[in-house]
Design a protein around this nucleic acid. Structure first.
Lengths: 192, 192
DNA sequence: GAGTTATATGGAGGGTGCCTCCGCTTTCAA
DNA sequence: TTGAAAGCGGAGGCACCCTCCATATAACTC
């Protein structure tokens, strides 16, 4: 028998780490400016590496999206957890929605990129969907327990509506417009 | 001076009309099954014409979308006009929303196709947007005049939200899911 | 129904992006 | 210093985009 766990023979090569970092930085920038139509060759060029290198680091377009945006998803989840401490559960939910819209606004192209390119069966999709649904669920439950929220609203309802509203708007008015729409929706779900 | 209006010297050629019809039929089918990623070469093939013929009839991808879907937009507008006669203005609005979702459901791929491929400055976009906004405006005004609707809701709010909700769902559950979301939204806007 | 002309056809071809593959280079560590 | 594992880049094959034009054909004229 060999050893149970093969520990890596070598530490990662310096060029590997350097190129990976360059690719992520370049990709975030290129997606932000070009949206979902950004070409991967453009990302590689911006990062100053060959296209082959990009594909070895991120074998699919989705893998690249995932690496670029997982951080943002995690931020949204973390914020929801922090807001569980808020006294007013409806205010907490609304704050979370507003903050999420603001976050997405700074990453113009993120959502379009995800919606256009990401297969619903992919890992990044289910990871994001599950994390966010879970985060919303806790905020929602508190509001319901306080009797301040329609009982039949699910976390999915809220997440999907929020995403949909973000998808139909673009440009400089994004944050204001989407916030307005989301508030209309939230007003209708809440009491008090 | 020549004659003011040049009347066409000849009537349209039979093959022109035939091919145009074939292209529209094929395009509707291909978009329905493949969504916005459908290739135009695929459409030409399905129609049994050369790619060059497709491009002469519809010089851009958007021109083809426009020709295929203008009818559907017009249907939604016509329905809104018919519903202006309804006694209950809130019920009328809800009926319109439900019917629109049902219509879109049968054209799976329509919305994705439009959202992915259509530039916001294009003719089909502004035509659709204006027609639909106008149609909704009249339904909305009646509901407001009856004191049954938030005063600060605009037709754009409703249209964008509806489109957004349609964008985030796909598959066999489409109609039920989207109707549910839209009802949540409408409930929150209306009184009585 | 033959000739004339306007109109329409199809597909080759040049351009671009996708992704794979593999010979060469760099880094690590012995 | 040197062997080999790990990583690199870009050529190349494929698919699709769209244009262009030599060829084909429908409509009109007499």
């Amino acid at each position: 028998m060999e050893r149970k766990t093969e520990q890596p023979r070598r530490r990662p090569r310096a060029d590997y780490l350097r190129n990976r970092e360059r690719l992520l930085t370049a990709a975030a920038e290129v997606f932000r400016t070009h949206g979902g139509q950004a070409t991967l060759e453009g990302v590689a060029k911006a990062a100053g590496v060959g296209i082959g290198t990009l594909y070895r680091h991120f074998p699919t377009r989705e893998a690249l999206f995932e690496a670029v945006y997982r951080r943002e998803i995690d931020q949204m989840v973390a914020l929801a957890e922090r807001l569980e401490g808020e006294a007013d559960p409806v205010a907490a939910l609304r704050q979370w929605v507003h903050a999420s819209i603001r976050l997405i606004a700074t990453k113009q192209g993120m959502l379009t990129a995800l919606a256009l390119a990401v297969d619903k069966s992919s890992e990044i999709y289910s990871y994001s969907y599950k994390s966010l649904t879970g985060a919303i669920a806790r905020l929602l439950t508190r509001a319901k327990e306080a009797g301040r929220m329609r009982e039949d609203v699910t976390p999915e309802d809220l997440l999907l509506t929020l995403i949909g509203m973000c998808l139909v708007r673009t440009g400089p008015e994004f944050e204001d417009d989407v916030t307005r729409l989301a508030d209309l929706f939230l007003d209708g779900l809440t009491r008090g």
